[in-house]
Every structure is written in C-alpha cells, then in structure tokens.
Simulated scan of single mutants.
Amino acid sequence: MQSLSWLHEQPYIENWKVEDAHIDHYGHVNNQAYLAQLEALAWAHTNALGLTLDDYRHLDRAMVIRRHELNYHLPSHLGDELACATWITSCDNKLSLTRQFQFICRRRQQTVFSATTGFVCTSLNNGTPKRMPPVFIQVYGQACI
C-alpha cells in the first residue's frame, strides 16, 4: 500500500474502522461521530505526549475547545478504515494552542475529513482562562510542528 499524503510530516495516527453506530440516516458517517473521533484522537495524542487527565486535575488546568473548523471532503461509509492524524500546529506557550486533524480513507487513499481546533487553557475549578503551567508549555510546545 502506498504511503498516505499527509498535510504535515510526523503525524500522530490512530486507526478508525467505521461501524454501524457511526452511520447516520444518509448512510454515511454522522457529524457527531467525527467530533467524537476528534476528541478521542486529541486525548490519545495528549496521553502519548505524557499528559493525562489526572495531570490536568492535579494542575487545575485543562485545554478546552474554543473553536472548531470542520471540513467534510468526501463521505465515509460502513466498513471504511480511516487513518486519523493530528498535529499541534501552534502553541503560544501562554493560553492557547491549535490542532489540525486529517482523516484519510485507506481504501480510496483520499482525505475524507479535516479540521482545525483552537484550544484555550482554563482552570478546571471555575473555567476561567489561566496561563499554561510549565509542563503544558514543555509538552505541547515541544510537540508543536
């Protein structure tokens, strides 16, 4: 199988096999399923970088979604296997970071979905914006492409 055409080098990749629960009344992957996959992929990447939800709780900090931009290029269907990639494309080392996502259908070798998500660092206790703790700056800053 040929290599996939990624937006950027060194993607963090998880595979997703489309199942019945992901299909909507039009017969293709539902918007909510894509959003759920974005969240799962972002957490998997964060965990692979060495940060966990327990770390977030201990530090009273969280990276919460400020904005999504979702692009549906082609429909995906039951049984499709998608290579789902993410990158941290910007990190200001203060309050915000941006992730890009790209999902490629392995069978068709084409991008079916892409997204950009902006995150802001907040206090878990009250939801107000707070500066990134040093470990966030180190982990997310070093992962930024």
Rank of each mutant, 00 (worst) to 15 (best):
G79D: 06
H45S: 03
I23F: 04
A85K: 06
L78Q: 12
D54F: 12
W87P: 02
S96P: 05
R66Y: 09
E9D: 15
S76H: 06
C84N: 00
Y12F: 15
V120Y: 02
H8R: 15
G50E: 02
E81F: 09
D54T: 11
D20Y: 13
F113I: 03
N125A: 15
G127N: 01
L74Q: 15
H8E: 12
H28K: 08
I65F: 11
G79I: 03
H58C: 12
I104G: 03
H58S: 14
S5F: 08
L7A: 13
Q109K: 11
D55R: 02
T122C: 13
A83V: 07
L51N: 01
L124Q: 09
L35S: 05
T111W: 05
N31L: 10
Y72H: 10
G127K: 02
H8N: 13
N47H: 13
D60P: 09
S5K: 13
R61K: 11
C105M: 04
A44N: 10
H25N: 14
C121K: 05
Q37L: 10
K130P: 04
R108I: 00
T52V: 07
L7C: 08
L49S: 02
R106C: 11
Y34I: 03
L35I: 14
L41W: 03
A42E: 07
F113S: 00
C91V: 01
R67T: 10
A48D: 10
Q102M: 06
P129D: 00
K94A: 14
A21F: 13
V120A: 10
T89D: 02
D60C: 10
K17C: 12
P129G: 09
A85I: 05
C91L: 06
T46W: 04
D80G: 00
S90M: 06
D54E: 14
V18W: 05
H45P: 03
L38I: 11
A48W: 03
T86R: 01
H22I: 00
K17D: 08
R131T: 13
F103K: 07
E19M: 12
H77T: 12
Y56Q: 11
R99S: 00
T117M: 07
N126R: 10
L7D: 08
V29A: 00
L38N: 02
T46L: 13
T98H: 06
I23N: 00
I88F: 02
S123P: 08
Q10V: 07
T122W: 06
H25L: 15
C105Y: 01
C121S: 11
L74V: 10
W43E: 08
D80A: 05
R99L: 02
C105T: 05
F113N: 00
K94F: 11
Y56W: 15
L35K: 00
L82M: 04
A83E: 04
Y56N: 13
L51G: 04
T86N: 09
E9N: 11
R99F: 04
R131F: 14
